[in-house]
Design a protein around this nucleic acid. Sequence first.
DNA 1: GCCAACGTTGGC
DNA 2: GCCAACGTTGGC
Length: 153
Amino acid sequence: MARCWLVKSEPDCYPYEQLEREGRTMWDGVRNYQARNFMRDEMRVGDPVLYYHSSTAVPGVVGLARVASEPYPDPTQFDAASEYYDPKATPEAPRWFLVDIEAVERLPRVVTLAEMKEDPALEGMQLLRRGNRLSVMPVEPEHLERVRALAAS
DNA sequence: GCCAACGTTGGC
DNA sequence: GCCAACGTTGGC
């Protein structure tokens, strides 16, 4: 079975609806080494991805997506006009990597953070650990299936 | 707006 | 290599 993932996005910044509309996007602007390492070293084309909305009134998983490319350097790190510009990165020695993400399907309903916390079947899920701030993280396949089942219920 | 948790930076 | 200071994330 493929590895499964969860990505966070603030809906004010890049909501799932926009990914649906555009079909596919570069998952750029990630500036955390752990998250980078997941994208650079462990993601494979086709891996399933839960799409999570953070910093919003009702945070939760809203859709399914999928890894759509091999890793490659995040072009925004070289762009002095970008908010993600990193002066220490060069094309010869890129520091930040990303993958493309494509929309698969919106969940029938939002699976909220609150209900995930209450669900014994999701115990141990990295998203639910205290103080978790990673914007890209692995998800156990059974946890991903459980979230899908909750969304269908 | 508050605050806990965490990552990063930089002085030593 | 330690650790305090600082900035950011993100739920509430």
